[in-house]
């Protein structure tokens, strides 16, 4: 049993996928558990912390290395995510997301930044960080349509799934395995959620949306781990790093100008929106694999 749970493929993919499915089933729209329920936010927070703890270990006091700071940033995301819905309005959430991701970029990267080496990877890390700030702020500041469009509940989850999946592959191929595992867990968990919601949509039900709180804590976790990869993974592909935060921006645009690209068919709208959001992530994965320093050999040497 311990060998089963010690297998990284179980803790990075199978278990989070299963937990994402379970959470999505629990959260199916019903009067007892609305999207804004703090029970759901707490459940996501607990799952998030479980995977942080499993991959990064317990919090170090005080945190010195950037990898030790990640779990504290997750706590910040959870703290903001648990704020009452009336405080986390679209405008406030957008501003908070931008400021919080920018602060994380500075906190995680100050040693690298103060080191003064402006090499290609550092430039890529700064660009990826800036895009993550813009993406998180844009996505968090969108307001819900009345009535909501069928694809709307999928936009933020699809952005997290695409960004985390591409980030995981970039990370592992870039010689940072632990952050790759963590992003892989985030992607699988969100993937499990999306799967259940899409099946529900195909069956004619409405997909359960994320509250602003859940969106914040998952987008924030995603963005901060991705920034860590960009700053510190020694062989992370610069082009892939720059492409990887773009799904957040595309997801925000899918709520606006890109909406015209979505078909009229109800069941296809979330699928096409998901594909649009995934395009930069697919390009990022291709770039990471094609220019992988040692071929696409995943795993520790």
């Amino acid at each position: 049993m311990s060998a089963f749970f010690g297998n990284p493929m179980v803790t990075t993919a199978a278990l989070p996928l299963l937990l994402g499915i379970v959470l999505a089933v629990i959260a199916r729209p019903r009067p007892a558990l609305p999207a804004s329920s703090s029970v759901l936010t707490l459940a996501w927070s607990a799952l998030l912390l479980f995977f942080y703890w499993d991959t990064l270990g317990p919090p170090a006091v005080p945190p010195v290395a950037a990898s030790q700071k990640l779990i504290y940033l997750a706590f910040v995301g959870i703290g903001v995510g648990l704020l009452p819905a009336r405080i986390l309005s679209a405008r406030t959430a957008g501003a908070l997301a931008g400021v919080a991701v920018a602060a994380a970029l500075f906190w995680l990267g100050w040693r690298r930044i103060s080191g003064g080496a402006l090499d290609l990877q550092m430039i890529a890390a700064i660009v990826a960080g800036a895009l993550a700030i813009i993406g998180a702020a844009m996505l968090m500041s969108r307001t819900a349509s009345v009535p909501p469009t069928v694809e709307e509940p999928f936009l933020a989850p699809a952005a997290v799934l695409a960004t985390a999946l591409s980030g995981a592959i970039i990370s592992v191929l870039g010689a940072s395995i632990v952050t790759g595992q963590l992003l892989g867990s985030l992607a699988a968990m969100t993937g499990g959620w999306c799967l259940v919601q899409y099946v529900a949509t195909l069956r004619g039900s409405a997909a359960a949306p994320w509250s602003k709180g859940v969106e914040f804590l998952l987008l924030y976790a995603n963005a901060t781990v991705l920034i860590q990869v960009a700053l510190l993974a020694p062989k992370a592909n610069p082009a892939a790093l720059i492409l990887s935060p773009l799904p957040m921006i595309v997801a925000a645009l899918a709520h606006g100008p890109l909406q015209g690209l979505l078909p009229g068919a109800r069941s296809l709208r979330p699928l096409i929106a998901g594909i649009l959001i995934a395009i930069p992530a697919i390009l990022a994965i291709l770039a990471a694999i094609v220019w992988a320093p040692h071929g696409a050999a995943l795993g520790f040497s």
């Binding site: 990877q121 870039g174 010689a175 395995i177 952050t179 700053l231 993974a233 020694p234 040497s301």
Partner: peptide, 12 residues
């Protein structure tokens, strides 16, 4: 891998 953040974290 050893220069990466999982081990000696050379960039930082």
């Amino acid at each position: 891998d050893l220069k990466g953040p999982d081990f000696f974290n050379a960039a930082e």
